[in-house]
Nucleic acid binder design. Structure first.
Length: 958
RNA sequence: GCCCCUGUAGGCCAAUCGGCAGAGCCAGUGCACUCAAAAUGCAUACAGUGUGGGUUCGAGUCCCACCAGGGGCACCA
């Protein structure tokens, strides 16, 4: 604030110097007083306390409105953050005034790395930092006048909250996916099936023959939350595994720049892949932006194809491939295994076949050497290297496979363009119909056989389009002449009959890595005994985070890949080693020392808002059914939050994880809805200009002066006289372009700030922040105030006269428009209509009639609630207008007596005529053709055609 | 490379079913008020809708191609 050159200083200076300003002018100071007054009032009166089913008020139609909750960061909010929050608040306030029981809660996604890092540096407990940040956020949000129900605010770090996060984890752990019933079921039912013999064990032994350890391992292999050896990003220098996003393209940690290694480590996984089909299919049942649905479908990556087995003469194992183009099998001229494929080792012969192509051997003496060298090279490359370098490389294994459709002997290569992580890690290569295979075949001199006719004049390489099959017949089956889809069906049938393949569905979606070696997260409700993990019974929850001396995981020599993660909790040995009675008498256990990822709390917080105090259940059945239940009036409605607003950055992960958890809870009978969020809306972002000087350093954006563009192409922006370069993008501390809501509230008031944010564009549009434009909305509020209140006395100037028809028309036009705009989230146009109405009143210059004044105040209340409440009170009403009835348009004032029709001749407006509103088409036509300018334009000619659009225009074609 | 979104006045944005390109805000200009300025009020200029085709009586709106900006995916067999 010390370097302030802004108008805030000017404003304050002026006020001091000009005490002749009217005492009751609506300025920032007045706005501030009004805003604090009404915020206190709403809090004291519990205006926004929302009734649950059974309580008075719950008989109204309900509406569950929700924002994606924020992470309370140490730097607080900037003006971009509350855009969505204000948008939902406007809708909530509008819906309350139109008779709805609106639930609009707010909470905090408060586990996370920054608080933990701060703790590592300073020794401050993350809870201390987190709670301080939350308090700051609450203040910042409160001053914006958001109508949240404060009694429902939750934080994921609250122990009563994460108790239920643990409970849900336990439910997931204690469940398995029954693929026959296509739903999750309790694990006890699976165990019962094994015990009774209804379900057979994989090796056919009876349940009673299995040792306890074998039984446990078998059951554990079915669980929806399970332990797996998974390849993860292990960073010894930081002592933790990292998410993919936390690894740089160079294969180093984003934080600290330490080497990161792909290593198989034991981690907790969630079996989200069991839900792949339902997660993809149910996207058709929700009202979400198509782009987000597309991203989720893409992420799930369902593709239908066939699994085909190729025999390898001399080897015991077959090679199984996945292909989406089984119709091209006759064109498969070689095979490729991923470098990590386990069969690589077993099929490699001792020596090269005679006459092997020199390009295939990698100049190695034996296939084993060639393959070993290639695999070592591939292992060195990071995943990104492999993706960036699209030149096809590979090496021959020395072995051949037999194409099941024609018995052809085809060479088997190892190449890193085939990924172990997708399909079976092996492909049949069809260069004629796949560009990647074409590229490889060309480089290594492999044959190319077209099996789809690309048609006359095709001069491309691989042909991936549809066309009749050619060269595709054996003694038993012929695909020749069939289109791609028919050919696929026929060959799959044939493969199935032969026992060499069948139709299958593949997904890109992988199971979800769920454990982190961090302190500031939810502990797992899991202990370990000699056989594996055991969930704690419900009555032993929550498992609270222990206090520790050191919040950091154990770190190692940065290059020592062969180290093991040691989470901070593992050193809390008194907490880790416990004696518990889990039903079989007291026994020693070790606690799970990983913690859950930050996504865990956000997976279900929308459920806790419904019933935040419940200590018996994560949410009561009644509350869930009332707020989230399926709407029987809508076909195939999945239920869920009525409107969920947030940024697109959560398009996949958060929204997919939540949907997964919700479906598990549905399957287990804990909720009645099938989807968490019935309707999703992505708000745009407030962006900002930033400026750099000649050295590329950011300069304070607020102090940059805009000049006129110079002839040499420079933009004319200067800072301290120095030319600077303008950039456009995010708002951030390091970019020196942050504007905070606190500043805006101080300089203009919260209502002006709210109105500005809602007014500058539609909710879904991103747009630049422009402080100088904020005066527009402020002037509007000032004019409304001045139209209704005497600036010198503060008394209302409203009169009880009957308004004239002209004003009534303007009013009802605004009412009708605003009633359409608010529910559609078109706040920018709603505000424009209110400004228009107020401009009519201003221009008229007379005292405003009560009927008009009250309607205007009610209509602006969702956007600018504090000033509206204040005016409502000054107009003589007691209490809040939060539940007052929103004005209804009267049809009588929406129709005009006469309509002015523009008359076009050949599409160009030539004249206008006024016609009574109830005139029929013939009358309008006659009036138009009788108009003297039109008569002149026609010049005696008979019009070819006359188009009359009722209520719109007339077009005469000559 | 593939997919999605967006291009309207100096800036931000409006424009029901294809029907008069302008609702509103900022900045600009002029005037009033003022000793003056600020604030306030009043009045105003400014684009033919990214480009090129097409469909139509009529296109910002529909279709095709291209350009620019933003986003997503990217050897997924």
């Amino acid at each position: 604030m010390s370097t302030e050159t802004s108008t805030a200083a000017e404003t304050n200076g002026e006020r001091a110097a000009h005490s002749d300003r009217p005492a009751y002018r609506y300025d920032a100071e007045m706005a501030g007083r009004i805003e604090r007054k009404w915020q206190d009032f709403w809090e004291a009166e519990q205006t926004f306390r929302t009734p649950n089913p059974g309580e008075p008020g719950s008989e109204k139609p309900k509406y569950y409105l929700m924002d994606m909750f924020p992470y309370p960061s140490g730097s607080g909010l900037h003006v971009g953050h509350p855009l969505g929050f204000i948008g939902t608040d406007v809708l909530g306030r509008y819906l309350r005034m139109t008779g709805h029981n609106v639930l609009h809660p707010m909470g905090f996604d408060a586990f996370g790395l920054p608080a933990e890092q701060y703790a590592v540096q300073t020794g401050t407990h993350p809870r201390t930092t987190t709670e301080a940040n939350i308090a700051r956020y609450r203040e910042q949000l409160r001053q914006l006048g958001l109508g949240h129900d404060p009694s429902r605010s939750v934080s994921t770090t609250d122990i009563p909250f994460y108790r239920w996060t643990q409970w849900i984890f336990r439910e997931i752990f204690e469940a398995w996916y029954d693929t026959d019933a296509d739903r999750a079921r309790p694990i006890a039912e699976l165990r019962a099936e094994f015990e009774s013999g209804a379900r057979r064990t994989p090796d056919g032994r009876a349940w009673t023959e299995l040792a306890e350890g074998e039984r446990r391992a078998l059951i554990d292999s079915y669980r929806l939350a399970y332990i797996s050896e998974a390849p993860v990003n292990w960073c010894p220098g930081l002592g933790t595994v990292l998410a993919n996003e936390e690894v740089t393209p160079e294969g180093r940690s984003e934080r600290g720049n330490y080497p990161v290694f792909r290593r198989n480590l034991k981690q907790w996984m969630m079996r989200i892949t069991a839900y792949a089909d339902r997660l993809a299919d149910d996207l058709d049942r929700v009202e979400w932006p198509e782009s987000v649905k597309a991203m989720q479908r893409n992420w799930i990556g369902r593709s239908e194809g066939a699994s085909v087995r190729f025999a390898v003469p001399g080897a015991t194992d077959e090679i199984e491939v996945f292909t989406t183009r089984p119709d091209t099998l006759f064109g498969a001229t070689y095979m490729v295994l991923a470098p990590e494929h386990p069969l690589v080792e077993t099929i490699v012969p001792a020596a090269w076949p005679s006459g092997v192509d020199a390009r295939w051997t990698g100049a190695a003496a034996t296939p084993a050497e060639a393959v070993a060298a290639y695999r070592a090279e591939a292992a060195r490359k990071s995943e990104l290297d492999r993706q960036e370098n699209k030149d096809k490389t590979g090496v021959f294994t020395g072995a051949y496979a037999t194409n099941p459709v024609n018995g052809a002997s085809i060479p088997i290569f190892v190449a890193d363009y085939v990924l172990m992580g997708y399909g079976t890690g092996a492909i049949m290569a069809v260069p004629a119909q796949d560009q990647r295979d074409w590229d490889f075949a060309t480089a290594y001199g492999l044959p190319i056989v077209r099996t789809v006719d690309p048609g006359e004049g095709f001069d491309g390489e691989a042909f991936t389009g549809d066309g009749p099959a050619i060269n595709s017949a054996n003694d038993e089956v012929s695909l020749n002449g069939l289109g791609v889809d028919d050919a696929k069906r026929r060959i799959i049938d044939w493969l199935a009959a032969q026992g060499t393949g069948e139709g299958v569905v593949q997904y890109k979606l992988r199971d979800w890595l769920f454990s982190r070696q961090r302190y500031w997260g939810e502990p797992f409700p899991i202990v370990w005994d000699e056989h594996g993990p055991v969930s704690l019974p419900e009555d032993q929850l929550p498992v609270e985070l222990p206090d520790v001396d050191d919040y950091a995981p154990k770190t190692y020599d940065a290059d020592d890949a062969d180290t093991e993660p040691e989470p901070p909790l593992s050193r809390a040995s008194e907490w880790v080693n416990v004696e518990l009675d889990l039903g079989d008498g007291p026994k020693a256990y070790r606690r799970e020392t990983n913690t859950m990822p930050q996504w865990a709390g956000s997976c279900w917080y929308y459920l806790r808002y419904l019933d935040p105090e419940n200590s018996e259940r994560f949410v009561s059945e009644e509350a869930e059914r009332y707020w989230l239940g399926k709407d029987p009036a809508k076909a195939d409605d999945p239920g869920g939050v009525d409107l969920y607003v947030g940024g697109v950055e959560h398009a996949v992960l958060h929204l997919l994880y939540s949907r997964f958890w919700h479906k598990v809870l549905f399957d287990l009978g804990h909720v009645t809805s099938e989807e968490p969020f019935r309707r999703l809306f992505n708000q745009g972002y407030i962006q900002a200009f930033a400026y750099t000087d000649a050295r590329g350093m950011y300069v304070p954006a607020e102090e940059v002066v805009e000049g006129s563009p110079a002839a040499d192409g420079t933009t004319g922006f200067t800072w301290n006289g120095e030319p600077v370069t303008q950039e456009y993008g995010k708002m951030g501390k390091s970019l020196k372009n942050v504007v905070t809501p606190d500043e805006m509230c101080a300089r203009y008031g919260a209502d002006t700030f709210r109105l500005y944010e809602m007014y500058t564009g539609p909710m879904e549009a991103s747009r630049p922040w422009s402080t100088r434009d904020v005066v527009g909305p402020q002037r509007f509020l000032q004019r409304v105030w001045r139209n209704l209140v005497d600036e010198n006395t503060g008394e209302t100037t409203v009169v009880d006269d009957e308004p004239g028809d002209d004003v009534r028309r303007a009013l009802h036009k605004a009412v009708a428009g605003v009633r359409a705009d608010f529910p559609a989230l078109h706040y920018n146009t709603a505000a424009a209509k209110l400004i228009e109405l107020n401009n009519v009143l201003t221009k008229r210059g007379t005292r405003v009639e009560r009927e008009i004044a009250e309607s205007l105040v009610l209509m602006m209340a969702p956007l600018a609630p504090h000033i509206a409440e204040e005016l409502w009170q000054r107009l003589g009403h007691d209490g809040s207008l939060a539940y007052a009835s929103f004005p209804v348009a009267d049809e009588r004032y929406l129709v005009a007596d006469t309509v002015e029709y523009p008359i076009q001749v050949n599409g160009k407006v030539r004249s206008r005529v006024s016609v009574p509103a109830e005139a029929g088409q013939d009358e309008i036509r006659t009036a138009a053709l009788g108009d003297e300018k039109i008569v002149a334009a026609l010049d005696g000619a008979e019009p070819k055609k006359v188009i009359v659009v009722p209520g719109r225009l007339v077009n005469v074609v000559r």
